[in-house]
Amino acid sequence: MIKLNNITKVFPSKNGVVKALNDVNLHVKKGEIHGVIGYSGAGKSTLIRCVNLLEKPTSGTVSINGVEMTSMSQEKLRKTRQKIGMIFQHFNLLKTATVYDNIAIPLKLLGYDKKEVETRVDKYLGIVDLLEKKHTYPSQLSGGQKQRVAIARALSQEPQILLSDEATSALDPETTNSILDLLLKINEELGITILLITHEMNVIQKICDYVYVIENGDLIEQGTAINLFTNPKEKTTKKFLNTISQRKLSDSLIEQLKLNGTVTRLTFIGENTGQPLLAQLSHRFKVEPNILTANIMELKNGIVGNLVIHLVGESQEVANALKFLDDNGVSTEELEGKTNE
């Protein structure tokens, strides 16, 4: 559905040039939700704006449904963009227009007749649960309601792709969850492919099938949400995971505990999260497990559990216990104070 091939974007500056994106490759399959996560200045906003060519790449190609866009004429590009909806962090609603007109005006500019405009406005306000607000003004709405209007406006052109540029970062946690539930509903019921950018790991956790981690213009890690949550490779990815799960222990605590035992992170996936495997260790082996941190995270496509435990026992018994866990589908990682993320 969306293919970015070797995308590089360079901006001129007083001190030469700034490379916002460096040889980025990205492929979003039809009907999936993909997320790009990174800190401020990582290049993620530039990346998403390259998808609909609001930013033209310095080099590389952008293809939508197999059609290469970077060489299109402006007229053809405008028509293609009509199938790519976009929602923004700050809603971008007209303050002096009603909810109805905020959605209707773009449709009128595209040449739709009055009846079709009314039909679409009512249909998509119904989908976002705001039909009763269509004659109110943005100033009378909450932040979450404003974002729902913006989503209805994007949907009213009936796009195949929806781009989300930090759409929840200005919202409180409860409202964020409601907007994420709405995006899931749109994806499942309307079959719309979604590409979003965010700096919030809980957004990735809740709705994404696939994740890209971007840093200084480079895609440094990518994979399914399950894979990234269970086996992160890069330091930046691990830092993001630390914001939603208790994965991190202090170096000094790890060093202290390792004097008389082993500190290990266990990762459980799916059905293994409900198995009493840890309870079996002390019965099967001469070890004493002590739980230091624990959590269970529900992702869009599965459940992941994390435990950090302190195992006390003879080295061979500890090794046998860890092998038992590995054999039962539990990933184990011995933590070292110097390398703990």
Results as ranks from 00 to 15, higher is better:
178 S>A: 07
161 I>M: 00
247 R>D: 12
180 L>F: 06
164 S>D: 13
200 E>K: 10
191 G>L: 10
169 S>T: 11
202 N>E: 04
171 L>Q: 03
174 E>P: 10
246 Q>K: 11
219 L>Q: 04
216 N>L: 09
206 K>G: 03
187 N>V: 15
186 I>F: 02
256 Q>I: 14
177 N>D: 14
182 L>T: 05
169 S>E: 08
193 T>M: 12
163 L>Q: 01
238 K>G: 11
259 L>F: 02
213 V>K: 00
236 T>Y: 04
236 T>C: 11
216 N>P: 02
189 E>A: 12
209 D>W: 09
179 I>D: 02
265 R>G: 14
181 D>N: 11
179 I>S: 04
164 S>Q: 06
260 N>S: 14
218 D>T: 05
214 I>P: 03
180 L>D: 06
186 I>W: 02
245 S>L: 15
205 Q>T: 15
185 K>Q: 08
196 L>S: 08
226 I>P: 07
205 Q>F: 12
213 V>P: 00
232 P>I: 12
252 S>M: 04
244 I>R: 00
253 L>W: 05
180 L>K: 02
221 E>P: 14
182 L>E: 05
255 E>S: 09
207 I>P: 02
258 K>A: 14
266 L>G: 07
204 I>V: 15
246 Q>V: 11
240 F>R: 10
200 E>S: 10
240 F>P: 15
215 E>W: 01
213 V>Q: 01
185 K>P: 00
215 E>V: 10
210 Y>W: 10
261 G>P: 13
167 A>I: 01
204 I>N: 02
256 Q>V: 10
249 L>T: 04
218 D>K: 12
266 L>H: 02
183 L>I: 12
239 K>L: 12
164 S>Y: 14
247 R>Y: 09
229 F>W: 06
254 I>H: 01
189 E>W: 04
253 L>C: 07
263 V>W: 00
181 D>M: 10
232 P>D: 04
183 L>V: 09
169 S>P: 12
234 E>T: 15
251 D>E: 12
